[in-house]
Structure formats: C-alpha cells, structure tokens
Simulated scan of single mutants.
Amino acid sequence: MSGHATVSNMKQVTDGNRDWGGMEFRRIETNGTELHVALDGAGPPVLFLHGWPHTWQVWRPVLPLLTGARRIVAPDLRGLGDSARAADGFDAGTGATDMLGLLDALDIDRADVVALDAGVPAAFVLGALHPERVRRLVLLEATLPGLPGGFATPPWWFGFHSAPGLAETVLEGHEAEYLDWFLTAGTYERRGVRAAIRDAFVRAYTGRDALRCGFGYYRAAPQNAASVLAAGRLTVPTVAVGGDTVGDLLHRQLRPVTDDLTGELVARSGHLVPLDRPDAVAELILTGPQGASG
C-alpha cells in the first residue's frame, strides 16, 4: 500500500434529488485533496477516470452493464465535479498519486483502470510507475503529450484553455452554451448528451473557480509531457480505444512504449465513447477487446 490516503474522513454522501439506484457516494481524502467518489458493485475492481468537461457521470450508461460483475470506483477528478476545489495538482503525476491514495483508502490492491480524454495521462503514469496496482489499462479517445504521433495540429481549444486566466474570464456566465458545443460535437452524428448528464456537467463547470480547475488539466500539458517521458514503458496489458475523433492516434503513440498493446476502433461513436457506445466499453471491461468494434 502506498499510504497516500486518510481513511478516517470517509463519509457517505446522499442526495434525495437524484436516483442513483443504490449507488454509494463517499468523500475520501487523498494526497492533500478530497475526492468525491461513486461506488457500486462487487467483483474485480475497476477505477474510472473521466475527462473534460465531464464528471464521473460520463460513465453512467456503462455502469449498469457491469452490475454484479465488477466493483465500480468512479471519482470526480481533483478539483472537478463534487470533489474539493484545488489550487493546483492537475498534472498527470499528481493525478496518479491521487488515485494510489484512493485505492489505498478502499483497500484495493489492484484494479483495472479505464480512462477517457484528460484522465488518460494520469492513467498512463499510474500504469507505468505502479504496474503492481494496475491489472489492465483501457484508454479512450486521447493523445499523450510527450509522445510523438499525436495531432499534427492540436484542436483550437487546446491553446485557448491553456492560456492562464483567459478562458475562465471570457466564459464565466456562458458556461452552458460553451459546454453544449463540446457535448454535441463530441457525440456520434452530433446527437448530443441526454439532459440529466448534460445538466450535471454544466453544473460542475459553472463559476470561475470551477472553470479554472477544469482548464488546469490543459495548462498541465508541459508537466504531463515530462511525466509521461519519465514514466518509461507500459508493461501492463493496455487497450487503446478510438472513436471518430482521435481514431488510432493513441494506439500509434503507445506502440513503441507498450509491451502488451491492443487497438480498438469503436464504430458508431464520437469522442464520448461511454455515452455513444456504453455496450462497447462494458464489453472491453468484461471480456477484453474482442468484438468492441462492431
């Protein structure tokens, strides 16, 4: 055990206005912050890391498909959603240490780690530096700073989000309109996100401080590049999963630095694979890569 968590401050969180189907919620201190964590199920544990502009709820369509087969651990990342606001620590190295502390607090020795978008760098570092804690990595729709083979030209918002203090100043008061663009563009055939999940994301990123924490994950790109390069090779089994945005870029990035790598292109999916194709994500978790691209 890595000893990064304070277990004594765990407590269950309930919200009578939400129907979570018996899911348990806790706030867990780890690595100098406090994470809100959704917990459910039994069996081999799976740790879920969301991206931007998401919360743990990006996995909601996947989780019922795992009922009774997996123990679900789905935190809001540092500073995001219902986790404590944070002054810093949005880089991949800190995120990996946050997750080690979370696993310790829950007495989990080893877990599958499933990560999307901005959660992928921390998952990579966790798997590379602590393979004894990671049974398998499933990495969805992201590129890794520091490794060649990413986007030839980064999407326009990478620079906008990375400029310190700019995006939150411009967007405060217009969070819903801005997030709606990403949540529509990120889904297959621009279908958009169902209302309950969309509203949860908008609530999570409303206000200057919430926006600042979200954009902190973009501003950590130089640190992430250094952490990814320093972490070395991935020795744990790894699946690189692409939708219609990243495609096979992550698979190509990981090929030179991963011992056991599978690539999967998920048909009929945009960037938000857990929302577009929860069946494919669940199948990857439960049975491995076979059949997820159908």
Rank of each mutant, 00 (worst) to 15 (best):
A5Y: 00
V7A: 11
N9V: 12
N9G: 15
N9Q: 12
V13A: 07
V13D: 12
G16P: 15
M23C: 06
F25M: 12
N31A: 11
G32L: 10
G32I: 08
T33P: 12
T33M: 13
H36P: 14
H36G: 10
A38L: 13
L39H: 09
G43W: 14
P44Q: 12
V46F: 09
L49R: 06
H50D: 07
H50T: 06
G51P: 11
W52G: 01
P53H: 02
P53S: 04
Q57T: 11
V62M: 08
L63H: 09
P64G: 15
L65K: 15
L66K: 05
R70K: 15
I72W: 01
A74Y: 09
G79N: 10
G81K: 02
D82F: 10
S83D: 10
A84G: 09
A84P: 14
A86Y: 14
A87I: 09
G89M: 07
G89N: 12
F90Y: 15
A92P: 07
T94V: 13
M99L: 15
D107M: 03
D107K: 10
A111P: 08
V113E: 07
V113M: 03
L116F: 14
L116A: 00
D117V: 00
D117S: 07
A118M: 14
A118T: 10
P121G: 10
A122W: 14
L126G: 02
L129W: 08
H130L: 01
R133H: 03
V134Y: 09
R135E: 14
R136E: 08
A142D: 03
T143H: 01
P148R: 00
G150E: 01
T153Y: 02
T153V: 15
W156S: 01
W157Y: 14
S162E: 02
P164W: 04
G165C: 04
G165N: 04
L166A: 04
L166I: 15
E168V: 02
V170Y: 03
V170D: 01
V170S: 04
L171P: 04
L171R: 07
G173C: 04
Y178V: 13
D180N: 15
W181Y: 15
L183H: 06
A185F: 03
G186F: 06
Y188Q: 06
A196R: 10
I197Y: 13
D199A: 14
A200P: 05
F201W: 13
F201H: 10
F201A: 01
R203K: 04
A204C: 06
G207E: 05
G207C: 07
D209C: 02
G216S: 03
Y218M: 01
R219L: 04
R219C: 04
A220E: 02
A221W: 06
N224T: 09
A230R: 11
G232F: 07
R233M: 05
A240F: 08
V241E: 07
G242I: 09
G243L: 12
D244E: 12
T245G: 00
T245M: 07
V246S: 00
G247N: 03
D248L: 12
D248G: 11
H251N: 05
R252W: 03
R252N: 06
L254S: 01
P256W: 09
L261A: 01
A267E: 13
S269H: 06
G270P: 12
H271D: 10
L272N: 06
V273C: 08
R277Y: 05
P278I: 11
